[in-house]
Design a protein around this nucleic acid. Structure first.
Length: 842
RNA sequence: GCGGACGUGGCGGAAUUGGUAGACGCGCGUGGUUUAGGACCACGUGGGGUAUCCUGUGUGGGUUCAAAUCCCACCGUCCGCACCA
């Protein structure tokens, strides 16, 4: 008998699958569909490490099971290949980004194929393919038509190292998430997508996504960050003459505290300062402060331990509309220009920041909310809480010192104040969001050109749809120009064009789209990858959408997954797609850490290449191990020892089947083997029960993405086959086959090989998933616990489904139980079917 | 500070509609096999005790016949956001 030789087995079956096209997506309409999708990878130059495939293996396991269960499975793969890393890699290695991309894709594809993944490569897509980005550009044009893509001149995040503008989502604590450089605020013309128009629907529809993890739903809610409150107008005037006057608008979530507003503050960038330049008596001091805060980086400004600073605007005074009192106005950089209106009404008695500022500059602190008695926050940390409460109180309560609001609870007070503001023309209900419009321009080469033309006469004109794609020109100089413009700006023959509207000379837009553009809709293209007329045919979308199961890293919670939902909802609104949400169920994959507990990275030299693992242990061993190492959505540490354990399991499966059918090493048993092959051997009853239990468990666990316990159950079953004095338990051939089928999603090569040795000429993946028999599972013998007063005193083995009476009678006979019940009064007996008997005694 | 997840042997982790804690795997121990090592096979393996037993799921309390699981308080870890008015 030969040993399990994965090097011989695995390539053989991979070739077979490819030739047989067993992964080709079936579209016969009688079967139910299942669209299972991985977040498609960015093909970096480094290739895959063993951490990357965890999600791909999981989708492959699920896809294979769904195939076996008779679904039409769509399980595609593609490449999110535009973006900075490739461009940087290309510049560094002096190759064209396209060449680098092609090379990287080839490497990735080879690696994925080696793992035996079931992708339908006939549907492969690549975001850098003009046939693909034609539609990315098309979507942009539709957004433009609907007024959802516009040009803005506001300051944006600029990464001086990457030489490009960035969206808020691309920052990590004020730094460029890619290169860790602190970003600057740079005013420049850029394209922006009006995602804020979709803020409410993006937020509200999260509640419909009941198959998304709560953590991602919460992250998106926080990111969108809706606050409800009011906008309030304060009159600003020159404090002596009162001649000049205008209104300063603020946003507040606490209009009920308006009577406690004792000063106002505006952000350094606020327009008011420019407008009142000649009224501000201490202009020198003010302008110095503006200079200083401009120099401060975003990080310094927002650092929590930084003391709050500001300068009074001498000569300017505001009027609190509630009580007509004149209050001071400050410029202070704790006020953020891009949230709310860039100005605040300060209520020091009920806001920590305002309190701190008021203390420092000796401003009035007027209490207008009395904490309610049942306010729970007090109890948690009494001394410091009370102490703080004496100074400022941010909770809800009852209004005091507030004229017509006195005695009202916070909620009521808010309503009444808003009503009063509306009646008197001082304000109205308003909602604000943390989510900002999506800065969509990048000043780099390797991205989709934004399909726009600038004409002197006609202004900005969209490229005609029938001229799409606006192709990225093939050039040799694609390094950033250093002027803040895209390298495309240097390519005269490409830039200079004709205005589609008037035919005059015009210039093309030279900004490109961010990396997130293609990934915001790619999942739709897999449904209909070769459609030349439409982005996706409507009937095909109707059949395949939404994605049933979407798997990828949690790091995309607030970027890719918000952007994609935004675009999808837009496409729904303009009638391109049939469903409002793109992804029905979302599972996120935990990171695999290196054996030293750190992230796998070239920098640490701790990267493990899957190619080496496959070479030494086999693709099946790697697959089973990655699924076994821990809960799917938790991060886990890679361990060679664990890998050895699953390899042993596979070897034991292999040797079990081979021992039964190997005629050469066991010639005397030839007759018995023939009988077995004719399915004339029966499975012992206890093993049949266990097998059916295993089928159920594996099936349920794959559905729930609990792969580790599915595998553990498969191991339990294999162990049951040869325990007890080396006596091997022989299953019927049909049951061996059932076992192989339920193992096949995890270890496709091995099971395919054994399937063939059992005399089959067709792939195991043309079989059907076995159905378990509930009756057989119930009949399994089980151990029932016997407790006295809740303490375990004995156990007994019983058949499944015995009555309470039988169980209690049997339990009472036990010597040990008699001992514990002696001289005690029996109060009651608790019986839990198939689990335990508990005697309560006194 | 806000939001989320979580805390179980030497290690990764099972068990959460409350019902035998530690499945499965690693490691370790004993024995077998082997020229030896490895591999393989059998048995054992939370801690304490010769043993009937006692004890045990971050800490302290509570509910219950019964708590890793539910409730309250505290401690700690990880992730996301953060001067958001």
């Amino acid at each position: 008998m030969k040993n399990y030789d994965h090097k011989q087995i695995e390539p053989k079956w991979r070739d077979y699958w490819e030739k047989e096209e067993i992964y080709k997506t079936q579209e016969n309409k009688e079967n139910p569909k299942f669209y299972i999708l991985d977040m498609f990878p960015y093909p970096s130059g480094a290739g895959l490490h063993v951490g990357h495939p965890r999600g791909y293996i999981a989708t492959d396991v699920s896809a294979r099971m769904m195939m076996l269960k008779g679904y039409n499975v769509l399980h595609p793969m593609g490449w999110d290949a535009f973006g900075l890393p490739t461009e940087s890699y290309a510049i560094k290695n002096k190759v064209h980004p396209r060449t680098a991309t092609e090379q990287n894709i080839a490497t990735f594809k080879k690696q994925l194929q080696k793992m035996g993944c079931t992708y339908d490569w006939t549907r492969e897509i690549n975001t850098t393919d003009p046939e693909f980005y034609k539609w990315t550009q098309w979507i942009f044009l539709q957004l433009y038509k609907k007024g959802l893509a516009y040009q803005s001149y506001k300051p944006i995040n600029w990464c001086p190292s990457c030489q490009t503008g960035l969206a808020n989502e691309d920052l990590e604590g004020g730094k460029c998430e890619r290169c860790d450089t602190e970003v600057e605020q740079k005013p420049m013309r850029q394209w922006v997508l009006k995602i804020t128009d979709y803020a409410d629907v993006l937020l509200d529809d999260l509640d419909k996504l009941d198959q998304w993890s709560s953590s991602i739903v919460e992250m998106q809610k926080n990111w969108i960050g809706r606050s409800c409150g009011a906008k309030v107008k304060f009159e600003i005037k020159n404090w002596k003459s009162g001649e000049k006057s205008e209104y300063l608008e603020v946003f507040t979530t606490r209009p009920d505290t308006l009577f406690g507003c004792t000063y106002m503050a505006v952000a350094p960038e606020h327009q008011l300062i420019e407008n009142w330049k000649f009224e501000i008596e201490n202009w020198e001091e003010v302008s110095q402060y503006l200079e200083k805060s401009k120099k401060k980086t975003e990080l310094e400004r927002t650092a929590e331990d930084k003391e709050k600073t500001g300068v009074k605007l001498e000569g300017v005074v505001a009027v609190n509309p509630a009580n007509g009192k004149e209050i001071l106005v400050f410029v202070a950089d704790y006020v953020l220009v891009d949230y709310g209106t860039g100005a605040i009404m300060a209520v020091p008695a009920h806001d920590e920041r305002d309190y701190e500022f008021a203390q420092k500059y000796d401003l009035d602190i007027l209490k207008v909310v009395q904490p309610s008695k049942n306010y729970k926050g007090q109890i948690t940390n009494p001394p410091s809480r009370e102490e703080r409460e004496e100074k400022f109180y941010t909770g809800e309560g009852t209004n005091v010192n507030s004229d017509f609001l006195n005695g009202l609870e916070t909620k009521e007070a808010k309503k009444k104040m808003i009503k009063w503001l509306e009646e008197n023309g001082y304000g109205f209900t308003a909602t604000d969001y943390k989510l900002k419009d999506w800065v969509f321009s990048r000043q780099r080469y390797w991205g989709e050109p934004i399909p726009m033309v600038h004409c002197q006469k006609c202004g900005t004109v969209p490229a005609p749809e029938d001229e799409l794609p606006v192709e990225l020109p093939e050039v040799t100089h694609y390094k950033p120009s250093g002027t803040g413009k895209s390298p495309l700006a240097n390519i005269g023959e490409w830039v200079n064009t004709i205005c589609p509207k008037c035919g005059a000379k015009a210039k093309r837009e030279t900004d490109t789209m961010p990396q997130w553009a293609g990934s915001s809709w790619y999942y739709l293209r897999f449904i209909d990858p070769d459609n030349k007329e439409r982005l996706v045919a409507k009937d095909k979308d109707k059949y395949w959408s939404p994605v049933n199961l979407y798997v990828g890293g949690a790091e995309h919670a607030c970027r890719h997954l918000i952007y994609a939902r935004f675009w999808h909802k837009f496409l729904y609104d303009i009638g391109v797609v049939n469903y409002e949400e793109p992804f029905k169920r979302l599972e996120h994959v935990g990171i695999i850490l290196a054996e030293d507990g750190r992230k796998m990275s070239k920098r640490y030299g701790n990267v493990i290449n899957p190619d080496n693992i496959i070479e030494e242990y086999g693709a099946d061993a790697m697959r089973v191990y990655e699924m076994f190492m821990g809960p799917f959505n938790q991060s886990v540490v890679w361990s060679v020892n664990g890998l050895v354990g699953v390899r042993r399991f596979l070897e034991r499966v292999y040797s079990y089947v081979n021992r039964i059918i190997d005629k050469e090493s066991n010639p005397l048993a030839k007759e018995r083997i023939d009988k077995w092959m004719k399915n004339q051997q029966e499975t012992p009853k206890d093993l049949a029960s266990l097998l059916h239990k295993t089928i159920k468990r594996v099936e349920d666990d794959i559905y729930k993405f609990k792969f580790n316990t599915a595998i553990s159950q498969l191991m339990i079953f294999r162990n049951a086959l040869d325990r007890k004095n080396r006596e091997e338990k022989i299953l019927s051939k049909a049951d061996v086959e059932k076992f192989l089928i339920i193992l096949s999603p995890f270890a496709p090569h091995l099971t395919e090989e054994l399937w063939e040795r059992l005399g089959h000429s067709k792939s195991i993946f043309y079989e059907s998933w076995p159905e378990y028999k509930e009756q057989l599972i119930k009949e399994e013998k089980r151990e029932v616990a016997i407790q006295v007063n809740g303490k375990l005193r004995d156990t007994m083995e019983v058949k499944g489904n015995i009555s309470k009476q039988e169980a209690v009678e049997e339990a009472e006979k036990r010597k040990n139980i008699k001992k514990w019940m002696k001289n005690k009064e029996l109060i009651k007996v608790v019986y839990v079917e198939d689990k335990l008997v508990n005697f309560v005694v006194k």
